[in-house]
Amino acid sequence: MRILWGSVAVGNSSAVALEGASVSLGGHLVWRDADLEVAAGEFVAVLGPNGAGKSTLLKALLGVVPLSAGTVRVFGRPVRRGNDEVGYLPQRRRFDPDLRIRALDLVRLGLDGDRLGVPLPSRTKEDRVRRMIELVGASAYAERPIGELSGGEQQRILIAQALVTGARMLMLDEPLESLDLNNQQAISDLIRTICERQGVTVLLVAHDVNPILPFVDRVVYVAGGHVLCGKPEEVIRTETLTRLYGAPVEVLKTSDGRLIVVGQHEPVSYHPVDH
């Protein structure tokens, strides 16, 4: 079964191009025959049930997980680790509260933590780190140990870390998970602002699509061994989502025209996050 929704972006402006791509992990096929093209500057939501291979998709685009078939290009070039054009925010729990390293140092590691040798003081690099911290609005707590910061504060720092190399694309794996409602909104707004003002392409893996739904350009759907993509209004529909999740899902429309996705197994409170 293979479905393709909507049009695909073409031309040199593509940020991501997957062609006939398959990935196997430990002999187990995660997904296959994926064709996907993301245009530069697009805001893309990556949806799908747990274990379907959403994180693996990001890792394939980072060059951390190799393809077993097909090709993958990012900004027109073969993928490789340490690409300064790509910023990555892995799925994670919070930092250990006892971790004694400043938020600032974490951002700096994003800039030159992959280098060998003793880090020497550098005005240019320090300025760059400070500018990124300012951009994400984290200046007030940048000098504090990362473990002492709240989930939302840590997430801002990590976005600064992902962007600090001058990344043109951000890959975020569940960045809204375990944040409270206010912070979910604040972080999604921040990511949208970065996407719009800096022209950064965003690939965001989400469990709960509601906070980002208003500004998603495209939806990539990973389920049942396939990677599919389409426009939000085509994918975010009761019958489509129900089929893809294999469980009843309802899409409601609010009075001001926004869509809200509700899983029917769960209580109709805000959203389920289960791992």
Binding site: K59, L62, G63, V64, R80, R81, G82, V86, Y88, L89, P90, R92, F95, L99, I101, D105, L106, L109, G110, G113, D114, I146, Q161, A162
Partner: peptide, 15 residues
Amino acid sequence: VFATVDPDVAEARGV
């Protein structure tokens, strides 16, 4: 230090 505090990102950055 990078690999210690942030192993996933370090891996993606080429460490």
